[in-house]
Design a protein around this nucleic acid. Structure first.
Length: 316
DNA sequence: AACACCGCCTGAGCGC
DNA sequence: TGCGCTCAGGCGGTGT
């Protein structure tokens, strides 16, 4: 599922083709996935204005898992991929069959650069390029803002971006919290961009138990965690993100970061650092995998952890 | 205030 | 082969 590295790689892979492109037309197949600015009537004109018809795309930005598309009109919209969302460029005939389903929003765009994919369909007819938002499970969506100021205001409720998080800032964000560290990392208002996969990966790499009270970390542990977040997220961006099933970049290519995962999806298998079996459990209603030896909770607590629900079993 | 937890939604994967 | 059940989880809303 898309987390920070997937969104950042997507943004980078889209930029050469969409920045500077003119939006010629729009088709919204499912209006419910689009949130307009408060008070705007949900008519065709409002959707067209909010999603940039007649404008050019000025630039893209990202904070955490959110990607913003800035329009020449001064308006901006945010793309949230949720679990199964994708934003891809199509030309020519486009997909058929199941791949053609759930394409909720389609922009007809005129890119400044020639696309690296065929623009003609099977009958040799040239078809315009499209930017397509697809999201089968619909946990994602588009959120439109009337101005950059409104976007900044919305983004002020998110924590700092995890890709370049520093020790001091992370320590400040976690201070005073008694909740499980993993729950704090998943909270986008604490730190923006970390989801279930990279939370488990960074905690394992930093050798910290996911249930450690967030505010109880010593400075050395916070420094390790910040460094591992930067390292792991950065490496995943370079690999084009983690594709478990759905994630694809601008041209539908999967990422390869799954190959470097140390714990995610590996419950019941040996820890690659110490060989002891990785445990599966649930924290904050999220599947959680950790190494009981490398990530020893008793380092932080002087009593044994509540509950003994950890199990040694491959979670599918 | 801080945190837990529900429910949205679809398709994969499984058992029978 | 096919049906129906369970599970996955980001995130806003609601409950404690």
């Amino acid at each position: 599922m898309p987390e920070l590295p997937e969104v950042e790689h997507l943004r980078r892979s889209l930029d050469p083709w969409i920045v500077g492109a003119r939006i010629a037309a729009l088709r919204v197949a499912r209006r419910g996935v689009v949130e307009l600015a408060p008070g705007e009537r949900r008519d065709d004109e409002a959707f067209a204005r909010a999603l940039g018809v007649g404008s050019t795309i000025a630039r893209t930005r990202r904070l955490g898992k959110q990607m913003a598309v800035e329009l020449s009109s001064g308006r901006v919209f945010v793309v949230q991929l949720g679990m199964t969302g994708s934003l891809t460029i199509e030309a020519g005939a486009g997909p058929r069959g199941v791949e053609a389903r759930h394409r909720h929003v389609r922009w007809e765009i005129v890119p400044r650069n020639a696309l690296p994919i065929a623009s003609v369909d099977a009958d040799g007819r040239t078809r315009p390029a499209r930017l397509v938002f697809r999201d089968p499970r619909r946990f994602g969506g588009l959120v439109a803002y009337a101005s950059m100021r409104d976007l900044e205001n919305a983004w002020s409720r998110l924590g700092p971006d995890a890709l370049d998080i520093g020790t001091n800032v992370l320590g400040d964000r976690l201070a005073g919290s008694k909740r499980p560290l993993k729950a704090a990392l998943l909270d986008q208002s604490v730190l923006a961009g970390v989801g279930n996969i990279y939370a488990d990966e960074s905690l394992h790499a930093a050798r910290i138990h996911p249930r450690t009270p967030a505010g109880s970390l010593g400075r050395d542990a916070v420094a390790r965690l910040a460094a591992e977040l930067r390292r792991i997220l950065g490496a995943a961006v370079e690999r084009g993100g983690s594709t478990l099933r759905d994630y694809r970049d601008a041209f539908g290519q999967p990422g390869s970061a799954v190959q470097i995962h140390q714990v995610y999806g590996r419950a019941g298998q040996p820890c690659l650092a110490c060989g002891c079996l990785l445990l599966g459990t649930v924290v904050q209603a999220r599947t959680t995998v950790f190494c009981p030896q490398c990530q020893d909770l008793s380092t932080f607590l002087n009593h044994s952890p509540r509950g003994t629900s950890e199990r040694v079993s491959a979670s599918r």
